[in-house]
Structures are given as C-alpha cells and as structure tokens.
Simulated assay, not measured.
Amino acid sequence: MSHHPSDENPNAIAQVKVLSLLGAVLLVGANSFVLSPILSEVAFSLATETYHVAWAISAFGAATAVSALTLAGMIDRMPVGRVLGGAAILLAVAQVSSGLSQHWIWLCLSQAVAGVAVGILLPGSYATATATAPKGREAARLGVVLTGWALSLVVAVPAAAFITEHFGWRMVYFLMAGLSVIVAGVLMAFLADLRGGKSTRTSPIRAIMLPGVWQLLAVMLAFMTAFYGSFAFFGVGVRAAFGLTAQGSGIFVLAYGVGFGVMGFVLGMISPKITRGYLCLVLLAIAASYGTWGLTLQSQITALAGTAMWGMLNQLGLNALVVSLNRQASEARGAVMGLNSAATYSAVFAGPMIMGPIYDMAGYAMVTGVGAVFVAMAAVVIWKRG
C-alpha cells in the first residue's frame, strides 16, 4: 500500500485520515450492536417474533464472514478511498433498506447486504491504519482507530434506545445511513492518495499460508470466542448477581466501553513495541481477568472495576493481534485482514453457541472460566510460535 502525502498541512491531513478510519469502525460497531437492545420494538412493529428479528443479526454476521473472505483483498489492489468509501455507501443503502423494512425477511436481507459492506470496510480500515502508520507507531495508530468500537458501545447503543423510544426504531437506521454517507465522503476525499500495492488478487488460501498467519488467526479465533461467548451472557450474568433491571445492567456495558476506549487513547500516546513476550503477557492477563469473575461478582463496585479492566485488556489484546497479523501480511494486508474478520465473525456465531449450555448448567462464572481456558491456550500458541 503506497501513498503520496500532500505538502499542505500534512499533520492535519494525517489526523483526518485516522479519524475517518475511526469513523468507519464506529459505523461497523453501531450496525453490529444497535439491533440487540431494540429487538422487541422491531418485532412488534413487524408483527413477528423476536427470534425472527434476531436472525437479522445472524444474517449480518454470516454475510460479513463470507464478504471478508472473498472481497476484502480489494484493498490490496484498488484505490483505498474508493474501496472504503464505496463500502460505506453500500452500508448506507443497506441501512435505509433496513429502516424501510416491512417484513422480517426484508430486514434480514438488508442486514445481509450490510454484512457484505462491513466485510470490506472493517478489514480495509484495519489494514489501512497499520499500513499508513509511521514505523513503530502501528499500535498507536490502530489504538485510536479501534476506539470506534468503544464509541459504538458508549454512544450508539444508548442513543439507539433513546431514539427508538422517542422517534421509532426506523429513525435509528435512517440516522446511521446519514452518518455512513458522511463517513463515505470523508474516506473518498482524504484517502484518495492511497493505492493498493498489488496488481493481482491474493486468495484466502494463499494468505493463510503466509508465515505465522494461521497461528495468529487461531489465536484470534480463541480470543474472540472467549469474548463473544462471555459478552453474550454478561448482561444476564450481572443482573442475576445483583438483581438489576435491564437498564441497571447497562452501566456495566458502559464501563466496558469506557475501559476499551480509554486504553485506546493510552496506546495512541505510548505505542508499545509488540513482541511475542508482550502478546503472551497481555493474553495471560486477559485469561486471569476471565478466571477471577467468580470473585469479581462479589460486589457491584468490584464488578464495575473488573468490567472496565476487561475492556482495557481486550483493547491491548486486539490491538497486539491485529498489528502482529499485519506484520506477517506483507502486501496482502487486505486479504489477511479479511481472514481476521472471518475468524472474528465465526466467533460471533461459535462463542454464544459454546457458552450457552455452560451458562444454563453452571452460571456466568463458569462461562468466564471456560473463556480463561481459551485465552490461556491462545497464549501457549503464541509462545510456541517462536
């Protein structure tokens, strides 16, 4: 990936580029998270069951995984602004269609189209963030961009609930579509000077055979399975522990998002050197965080602190893994980040499926205990990788 920087305010332009990529990740997070808290309102509006509406989330995840495997490599070959901006426009179209849905199948199809867009937009944003960062500053650049996930939890999810209550759920999707159009324009304008570094497509099989890539993808799959499996039951876990309402449990989701976001900005300032030892230590710290939830749930104060720490550690882990994958990717960053997104959205499916029976049998502390085992195994893979 190459670029031709402008002589006019290069620092300001670089900052806008980073913020445009943060905006792209915010779009992805917002579309990923907003439907869950408004499922019942959408189902009532469409005169259907909530599980039918929930299938739209599954359609989104499945389409994202397929798109990431097959289309993400475009970022390696085509103008970056055109690829990412076009994906954001497609996401806007899907969001307008979602807002206009008159049947749950229509909504599912619309969210599948959104998944196609995200399968390009998310890996492309990750690849661009690390490829354009000054040498040694990849973690810092990516830390800021990844903060888009935290903002989607802290801002987009509560905003979606408020907008649904006062203006209806359709307005949520129309407003997100407007934001997608704005981000598309910024991406096209400020990333127009970036070009992919390859003229031919790198297949997923060829990308996964690059040295070290499959091991890191296996680690990412374990890391994300632990997260999505634990996060799926996090709300009901804290509600059961402290007798909270759904609204009361929202403060814990907020604590996670704040922790994740704060650590992103810290990384933006310190930019740690990502080594094998560093990654192992981070993964072991995350495993310890999962393994101690039985103690963390003894009081609401310790639970809030533990949740914020979970968010901070997950920012460190995700950042280090994405930077490591990009280092192994050479000129196939888009293809490798596509594999990463496919692994991530496979975990979206696998995590809750694995952890569901465990939660029913033994409760939330056992769910996080299993998560600790997954992450500890990931640390072993990193250590043996050499």
Rank of each mutant, 00 (worst) to 15 (best):
S2A: 10
H4P: 02
N11E: 10
Q15Y: 05
L19R: 05
S20P: 10
S20G: 12
G23R: 05
V25L: 13
L27Q: 05
V28H: 12
S32T: 15
V34T: 14
P37C: 07
I38C: 08
L39E: 08
S40W: 04
A43H: 10
T48G: 12
I57Y: 01
S58E: 04
A62R: 00
S67G: 14
L71M: 13
A72M: 03
I75A: 13
R77Q: 11
R77H: 04
P79H: 03
R82W: 11
V83D: 10
L84K: 14
A87C: 04
L91T: 04
A92W: 06
A94P: 09
A94S: 14
L100N: 13
C108G: 12
Q111C: 06
A114R: 02
G115R: 03
V118N: 02
A127F: 06
P134D: 15
G136Y: 01
R137M: 14
R137C: 11
R137K: 15
E138K: 08
A139P: 11
R141D: 01
G143K: 02
V145A: 07
V145Q: 04
S152V: 07
V154H: 12
V155D: 12
P158H: 05
T164P: 09
E165F: 03
R170Y: 02
F174D: 14
A177R: 10
G178C: 02
L179Y: 05
S180A: 15
I182N: 06
V183Y: 14
A184S: 14
G185Y: 07
M188T: 07
L194F: 09
R195H: 07
T200Y: 02
R201K: 01
S203V: 00
P204N: 01
I205R: 14
R206P: 00
A207W: 10
A207P: 07
A207F: 11
G212D: 04
W214R: 04
V219N: 01
F223S: 07
M224S: 08
A226P: 11
F231G: 02
F231N: 08
G235R: 00
G235W: 00
A241V: 06
T245R: 13
T245H: 13
A246F: 00
G248V: 07
V253W: 09
G257C: 13
G259A: 09
G261I: 06
G261F: 06
L267M: 06
G268I: 00
G268P: 00
I270N: 09
R276Y: 03
R276C: 10
Y278K: 05
Y278H: 08
L281T: 08
A285V: 04
G291Y: 06
S299H: 04
I301D: 05
T302S: 15
A303F: 04
L304E: 08
A305Q: 13
G306V: 10
G311S: 11
G311F: 06
L316A: 11
L318T: 13
S324F: 12
R327C: 05
A329D: 12
R333F: 10
G334C: 11
G334R: 10
V336G: 05
V336P: 01
M337L: 07
L339F: 07
S341N: 09
A343K: 00
T344E: 00
T344Q: 00
S346T: 03
S346G: 09
A350S: 14
P352V: 01
P352G: 10
M353V: 15
I354Q: 14
Y359E: 12
V370Q: 01
V373W: 00
A376Y: 11
A376N: 14
M377C: 15
A379I: 01
V381D: 03
W383S: 11
K384F: 15
